[in-house]
Amino acid sequence: MIWQIEITILIIVIILAVGALGVKDLLGAAILFGAYSFMMCLLWAIMGAVDVAFTEASVGAGVSTVMFVAAVFRTSRRTED
């Protein structure tokens, strides 16, 4: 638990969260959300929650990104906000 690394990753996570909500392309938002999940997984691994980090790496970054991409593929990609 090195707090410098943790704070750095937390700031990256916040930037990615703002990016995922702010970008006007839904496919881009899905990919940014995947990156956000990966950073979150790193954060949990630093905190010593290895099981949770493992789950997030497989579920949040893997499967839910695929589901978002599938849903965007079946609906529309552009958005106003």
């Binding site: 290895v50 099981d51 980090a53 493992f54 789950t55 497989s58 579920v59 893997g62 499967v63 695929v66």
Partner: peptide, 21 residues
């Protein structure tokens, strides 16, 4: 070691998804 039913199940499902893609 870290792991268990939830993680293994998701990885098995992901193997099927990668095949489908």
């Amino acid at each position: 070691s870290p792991g268990g039913g939830f993680q293994g199940g998701v990885i098995l499902g992901a193997a099927m998804i990668i095949y489908a893609i």
